[in-house]
Amino acid sequence: MDPSDRLPPPSRFGLRGLPRRRGLPGVAGGAGGDAGHPARRLGAPGSSVWYFRRSRLGMGAAGVALVFVVAAIFAPWLTPFADAGRGVPDLSVRLQGPDGTYWLGTDDLGRDMLARLLFGARTALIVAVGVVALSVVIGVTVGAVAGYFGRWVDEVLMRITDTFLAFPPLLLAVLVAAALGASLRNTVIAIAVSWWPWYARQVRAQVLSLQRRPYVRAVQAIGVPSHSIIVRHVLPNAMAPVWVQATADLGAAVLTAAGLSFVGLGPRPPTADWGVMIAEGRQYVLSGQWWIAGFAGIAIVVAAMSFNLIGDVVRDVTDPRTRGEG
């Protein structure tokens, strides 16, 4: 058994038990504010949302993230070069620098870079949301089942979880992506396969502590079936830290997917993908055509940063000790 299973709850102990994470230490669970039952009204003074709104850093990051999401959703309507965004080349205007027509220049096939970036935001958003959603679904299921049923079920599931956790981050994703072959769907699967254990652990810890709460005991006593208890009564209260984690993970997902794309394990062309754009744009940088890799890199950094900052601030405001920071 990993000692962290037996450590005091993180909120008292601080770090141990939280950290082994993709750079994003987990939220303080268990005793954390919003994890209580019943949930507090959204946005009320003193609530997490209220604190978040007061964080300039958080609100700034949220603004940027919103722009990113809007760009992704409305990409085709935001550019006159939607076809180029979808991948239709125009060789007569290849590798043009930024100008009045092509604000961010054109790529090696004469496609407007701004359009490609907008459509790349789509890819990034799909991957990020896909990875996090898939990881949450698997992780929450495994974690809840392990935590609720305990005993050998817990033992088996947690040993499996530990095994997946034993891979250094990225490595398992690379392995799986290499085995499945390059495509958008496989990128999502590959990353999710290596991420779900983090959620499984978190949910399990939550479920373990919630299970002892009187209200759970009460519904157990009146004979409500297990699956219904898990879904109706335990999970809703165990999910708060999961959502915090999920938010913070969106940035890491964008970054990880870019890494896979860079080594040729990303979506297939002509799908617009920021990681691929850097990989392919690298070769033009030396000869002075910096705008392909340059702008794609900026897009990744800005997107990842905004999600990471949101994650940071959310984590702070959901933890009573650090509330009101930022």
Binding site: G251, L255, A258, G259, V285, I300, V301, M305, N308, E325
Partner: peptide
């Protein structure tokens, strides 16, 4: 805590975890 240098270091930290390594490598090499 909560002063300018704190915010600066935080931003630095967030930048660190938001940079694709192959991109920062390219910039350094250049």
């Amino acid at each position: 805590h909560r002063r300018l240098s704190d915010t600066g270091i935080r931003l630095l930290a967030v930048t660190g975890v938001s940079m694709p390594v192959f991109w920062s490598a390219l910039i350094l090499q250049l």
